[in-house]
């Protein structure tokens, strides 16, 4: 097995770490008990993936708790505040569709990332399924849910373009990945009576920079909360 490229493990690991954290914010706040279980399940899967990926680069806790904001390589999409349930589902739809297609490709390789990807692809399949089903229910549910879901899709759309910028060390055909992702999302949204937002895929302005360590304002606050206790006790073990 070939060594995994550290920059790639970090980018993918940070995506999973940060999204898991944001999903963890739902604990005790979900709209229905079944979703307490489902969102926690997804958060736990992602945290598991993050721990494997970060451990390929170094000590998982040092990387999670002692890096400064500018050293994180996650997409800006995953760091956005959880918003209402529609925002969380829109994010899950965008991200899990991306992760599912990406991991399917990465699983073909012979690095440690490939090994992780081939295991995780089954988990991510469930994540995408969960997101797509909720997209249908919210989009084709009531007038209010339709409107909220459309708003959430529109608001987060600007953060999707960044996902298809090449990650150093990964041999992926990014243009094809983007096309497949766009197809998938288009299909789901049409079935859910929702409209594909205008944005990066149609040439509009796109946010970005997460992969280079440029993040959005809410991220610093998220890290402050996440890292505070660990940093307050330098050198302690837990």
């Amino acid at each position: 097995m070939n060594p995994a490229p550290a920059s790639a493990a970090l980018a993918l690991g940070d995506d999973a770490l940060v999204l898991s954290h944001r999903l963890g914010e739902w604990a005790g706040h979900a709209p229905v008990l079944e979703e307490e279980l489902a969102l926690a399940n997804i958060a736990l899967d992602l945290l598991g993936q993050a721990r494997v990926l970060l451990s390929l680069v170094g000590d998982e806790d040092e990387l999670a708790y002692l890096r400064e904001e500018r050293a994180f390589r996650n997409l800006q999409l995953v760091e956005q505040p959880r918003g209402d349930f529609a925002h969380t589902i829109a994010r899950q739809l965008y991200f899990s569709s991306y992760q599912r297609l990406l991991y399917e490709e990465l699983a073909q390789g012979d690095t440690a990332i490939a090994e992780l990807a081939s295991k995780a692809v089954k988990e991510v399949d469930y994540h995408r399924d969960h997101a797509e089903h909720w997209t249908l229910r919210l989009g084709d549910g009531t007038a209010e849910s339709h409107q909220r879901m459309q708003q959430a899709l529109d608001a987060l759309w600007r953060y999707t373009g960044e996902a298809f910028e090449p990650i150093e060390g990964l041999a992926v055909d990014w243009a094809t990945l983007r096309a497949r992702w766009t197809d998938r999302i288009t299909t789901v949204l049409r079935q859910a009576t929702l409209t594909l937002p205008n944005g990066p895929q149609s040439g509009a302005w796109a946010a970005g920079g997460g992969r280079q360590g440029v993040h959005t304002e809410p991220f610093g606050r998220m890290l402050a909360e996440m890292q505070h206790l660990h940093r307050s006790h330098p050198g302690a073990t837990w």
Binding site: E25, A27, A40, Y65, L229
Partner: peptide
């Protein structure tokens, strides 16, 4: 779930965070 979920976002190691999330999830179950 609430008093423990209060610490999920501040768990001081990733291992502890995973254990705590799983525990709070069990309580929902």
């Amino acid at each position: 779930m609430q008093p423990e979920a209060n610490w999920i976002t501040r768990a001081p190691s990733l291992r502890r965070k995973a254990i705590l999330m799983a525990k709070v999830q069990d309580e929902a179950g």
